[in-house]
């Protein structure tokens, strides 16, 4: 794929994946993906990484006393 086109596609993919694309941009990508295996692979891979980050990243536990501690310090400031 030519350099400029590839870069445009990468930008378009990112916009769609992040929910920031316009309807026209989404349509443009829908038209392009079936015709380009390279972009299809990149799209699916990027989606799966985004999904993995959201669902499988270990979450730290919020310390139980933190909210109470903040609220009592704020009361002192008020």
């Amino acid at each position: 794929m030519e350099v400029e086109k590839k870069q445009q596609c990468s930008e378009l993919l990112q916009l769609v994946i992040d929910g920031q694309a316009t309807q026209q941009q989404r349509h443009e990508l829908d038209e392009h993906l079936p015709k380009c295996e390279c972009c299809r692979n990149e799209f699916e891979l990027s989606l799966s990484i985004k999904e993995g980050l959201k669902s499988r990243l270990k979450k730290p536990n919020l310390p139980s006393e933190l909210a109470t501690s903040i609220q009592s310090k704020v009361l002192e400031l008020a």
């Binding site: 350099v3 590839k6 870069q7 990468s10 390279c38 692979n41 990149e42 699916e44 891979l45 799966s48 990484i49 993995g52 980050l53 499988r56 990243l57 270990k58």
Partner: peptide, 29 residues
């Protein structure tokens, strides 16, 4: 530079990412 994308995309598969556990993704991030 576009060359980077091409290489990474061909070296990493969706199935591989799906098999990775939280620790691996956390460490990478």
């Amino acid at each position: 530079s576009e060359s980077v994308d091409e290489k990474i995309t061909t070296d990493l598969r969706v199935e591989t990412v799906q098999h990775m556990i939280g620790d691996e993704i956390t460490n990478a991030l």
